[in-house]
Design a protein around this nucleic acid. Sequence first.
DNA 1: CATTAAGTGGAGGGAATTCCTCCAGTACTT
DNA 2: AAGTACTGGAGGAATTCCCTCCACTTAATG
Lengths: 199, 199
Amino acid sequence: MRADALERRNTLIKAARAVFADRGHDAPLDAIAAHARVGIATLYRNFPSRDDLAHAVARTTLAEVRALAVRALDECVDQPEAAWRRFVDAVVELRMGALVPALVNSLDELPPDVRDMREQTKAAVTELIHRLQDFGLIREDVVPLEIIMGIAMLTRPHVLMFEDTTANLVPRLITVFLAGLRPDGSPLPPPIPPNAAVL
Amino acid sequence: MRADALERRNTLIKAARAVFADRGHDAPLDAIAAHARVGIATLYRNFPSRDDLAHAVARTTLAEVRALAVRALDECVDQPEAAWRRFVDAVVELRMGALVPALVNSLDELPPDVRDMREQTKAAVTELIHRLQDFGLIREDVVPLEIIMGIAMLTRPHVLMFEDTTANLVPRLITVFLAGLRPDGSPLPPPIPPNAAVL
DNA sequence: CATTAAGTGGAGGGAATTCCTCCAGTACTT
DNA sequence: AAGTACTGGAGGAATTCCCTCCACTTAATG
């Protein structure tokens, strides 16, 4: 594969993540090509179907989240609180909300490698959160998945909001949410069923 | 106006709120008519433009939220904690998230009466939250708008999630969020700018 | 109960998106 | 410099959505 072609391919994946995040998983593919400043044909040559593109986004994003979790787990030894906050901020930055649809959409016919990556990421995040619960930094009655879903929902683009509003509001909402995750929070209703596995 | 016509009109407004909530503010109008089990012509006769329908949804929902806030304010005297929780649960039930777009979309050319209703609702909710802050039940460094936005974002439909997941997950996330709103939470980043007034 | 005016449904033409292919042309690589 | 990998974007097909039109139905009224 030619070097410049590979670069374009990566640009497309990044663009797709951004556009999916901004305009939803059903955003027109043309918009993604335009965002990547690339011809539409280039997109189709690299990703024959929308799913191919979505899976590529899932692969890279999952890998990044996994790396973040592993690093946070490592940093936990010294300063668990800061590690946790850094992890969350990074995940927010990644706009996880954009990814969830690609993962849930067709859980069944997910390509094996994406499925694997998903399992690995899930394992890493789960371990991190359990560790933090052991440290007493996170209440015991929440499931890792719920935390991820909360972050995803709070970081989903509010299409119709002023841009600077989103930029300022989201970090504050995340902080409030994190505060609510601390062990002294009020009791929770029963947890979600197991088939809800998203990440 | 004929009695059955009025009833259909109200059915349409309810259907619109549900469909807007489920599929976004740009859901096809046909879907709304179908959901209301009504011909598409009936929808157009009652609401010539999409905005007319959106405004009708806004009017009724805002009125309901205002009534809820007023009642909660009243109940505050006896049991502020329970009143607050009841209020939030009711707002969640109303699927406020469906409303926000209609309000933000065209803040400028909002019809006067919707604008007024919005102001009244905003005033009522603001008063309620300030009261709760006085009671020491809500941290002082959050703005009422932020609380509303948080609830809206957490209750927006995750189109691609299993239904029972949403049903079970949302109440838990709301509870976590509320826990984070209590006064002993960690410090917040700077608040959002004033032009962000959504409710 | 008959009359009438208000109200209804949904087919279907038109406009607007979006998809996706095709091929003449560009630019890495060796 | 040659050759091959790669590119862009025009444009036809397909889909989606909008919205009007009119033959028919039903509530109100005397």
